[in-house]
Write a protein that binds this DNA or RNA. Structure first.
Lengths: 354, 354
DNA sequence: TCCCTGCGGGAAAGGGCTTTCTCTGCGGTA
DNA sequence: TACCGCAGAGAAAGCCCTTTCCCGCAGGGA
């Protein structure tokens, strides 16, 4: 690889001058030398060694992000928001997938610290795990002690800047909607119970049912992986245990899609026999058939805000931004079927392509 | 940030010894010193500066990847394959999204070169753009001249290691299937015509039709963005121009989903009135209703192979691996409707959740 | 007793860049 | 004419590590 001194030598200047030209330093350089340097750069196809630059420069610029999986639409949307702000500010993003493995999450914090990121964003759900939380907080504290900025998305036991989707309110919305449609036997297809996302959404849901004088017993909840196959499998277990179910709440849209697959396999019409409500409103939600009724979270905006928090001026007190959830009515939630009468399939509501 | 010399000082040893302990060097260190160093590391929460390490070490380890967009399922799958091999070998992956912007692609090549990656994988489609291709090749050549390894996925005008999905064969498969079902009026919802992926798939399709004595006039092709909305829009234009169409080939699954959305909006039954065939077999393809008939590409495997090529021993001659395409029959492609008879909706074929 | 060997440790030389500090030479002022 | 100041260029000091090279010392063989 050509180095800066190669360029300098070829241009007949000192490395200092070459560096100044290449970085557009404020220190003035004669046009003639400038041109000679630029020519040498082009001829040698010179690209500065990023590591050497980062070592020599004082200020850190990159931002680290830890998500569960960028290819999961939930995180893809959040990342889009993060990226937008980062790009605007000329920051490089280092994105790490923890695949919901707490140990890997810890490792990535170290790794990103080692890479001298200016800030760190934890975009995955928090865990109900004291030992892990303590370790994570130690590492984050060490990082913050050296001037690193941290923001979390979701409920983590971390005192600092945070963007919180209102999962509880979202759960409540889903529950109220189904109650309003007359459902009593409501099953829940939940993500891993160790995630705060799961428990928060569940808590909101439970509150809605309780307010309506209904209840949500544990036997109507099935925990599984937070993805399509987890949803399919949990739905199957739920139906096996309780064939009377008239509605299913899936705690994210991927699981909801799995639930729809299982219902289809079993010949249960949605929403005529069983209603389904998802969570997140990922883009695909409107394209499944019937289009998914779900709870929308402002995912992109969450990313935008988290990045803004972390790149903005440090506030004395930790800032917490709660972002509301919103019910999106589509075609998978309908009135509870009248008992004792065989339900005939009705025409599906039309959907709009846009 | 604590540095290595801080650790050394605290442990009462030289930086050299500290480094040896931390990196598990082969050079032996007394247990006592070792423990003192380890203790100091823990107390100071020391994390080595990755940039300094990379600068000091001679060998480069990270691998750079340029994709169009990791959150696009097509690339998510490929990336999964890349990641698998990289992780096995303890390599860090730097993934960059070009968002199908050639200039950004060029910039990322520079950036990754600057970051001293050991290898570079171009996973996006190639472009029909001579100026761009020349620039790209120059940059890649410069990189390879300094010992960098390069592999491309898809057809790029780059002489070197490559993994090629057989897009042409896939297009052929789609065409033959529809011909076999009796379709004559076949429309194509295509991605940007500047992408080799588009033209290759189109070429295969055209060949199939030609062999059957049919043809594929330009007026039955609509080019749009390679995503859901592009597909929806192109389908609308196609139907407006030619309402007699009995089948649509979408050049990727995202577009196919957009096509289904438009057909649904217009009240056209799939596959009774219009058949649809997609391309790629992304995971969601089996979950839309009706489940999508499509052409499967071994996406994960493509990633695995590309990474293996690039991390394996350099072969004297460039290696090109062509991976076959396969037709996956699901529920969106059916026999051509008999003309002159109103088509009544039939029962949908059952699908299996798995 | 002396020398050689080998082990454990430290000194120091990079690795490629940025940036401060220093130096030279010029134009301008008194 | 003497001096000051400043513009433009270079010398050199880091930034934080790794790794080679070297040194001192203890043990073993002659």
């Amino acid at each position: 690889m050509a180095t800066l001194s190669d360029v300098a030598r070829r241009a007949g200047v000192s490395p200092a001058t070459a560096s100044r030209v290449i970085n557009g330093s404020s220190k003035p350089v004669t046009d003639e030398l400038r041109e000679r340097v630029l020519a040498a750069v082009a001829e040698l196809q010179y690209v500065p060694n990023a590591h050497a630059q980062l070592l020599a420069r004082s200020h850190r610029s990159a931002v680290g992000v830890i998500v569960h999986d960028v290819s999961d639409p939930y995180f893809a949307e959040i990342t889009r928001g993060l990226q937008r702000v980062a790009t605007d500010q000329g920051r490089l993003l280092m994105i790490c997938n923890s695949y919901r493995d707490p140990d890997r999450e810890l490792e990535y914090v170290e790794l990103l610290r080692g890479h001298q990121v200016a800030a760190l964003i934890l975009a995955g759900s928090g865990y109900h795990d004291e030992a892990f939380t303590r370790q994570l907080n130690e590492k984050l504290a060490a990082y913050e002690a050296t001037g690193g900025r941290v923001a979390v998305i979701g409920r983590h036991e971390h005192s600092g800047d945070a963007v919180m989707p209102d999962n509880r309110a979202g759960g409540y919305l889903a529950g109220r909607e189904l109650c309003g449609l007359g459902h009593r036997a409501i099953g829940v297809v939940a993500g891993p119970r160790i995630l705060t996302t799961t428990t928060d959404r569940l808590a909101g849901l439970r509150q809605a049912l309780t307010e309506q004088g209904r209840e949500l017993p544990e036997r109507r909840i099935r925990y599984a992986e937070f993805d399509r196959d987890g949803g399919a499998e949990a739905t199957a277990r739920l139906l096996d245990a309780d064939p009377e179910l008239t509605a299913i709440v899936a705690l994210n849209d991927s699981m909801a899609i799995g639930a729809l697959a299982t219902l289809r396999t079993r010949g249960l019409a949605v929403p005529q026999q069983v209603s389904v409500v998802g969570f997140d409103d990922m883009p695909i939600a409107r394209d499944v058939t019937p289009a998914l009724t779900t709870v929308r979270l402002p995912l992109v905006d969450m990313g935008v805000r988290a990045m803004s928090l972390v790149l903005g001026a440090g506030a004395p007190a930790p800032r917490v931004e709660v972002l509301g959830a919103e019910l999106v009515r589509r075609d998978t939630a309908g009135p509870v079927p009248r008992p004792g009468r065989a339900t005939a399939p009705r025409a599906r509501r039309g959907d709009t392509a846009s």
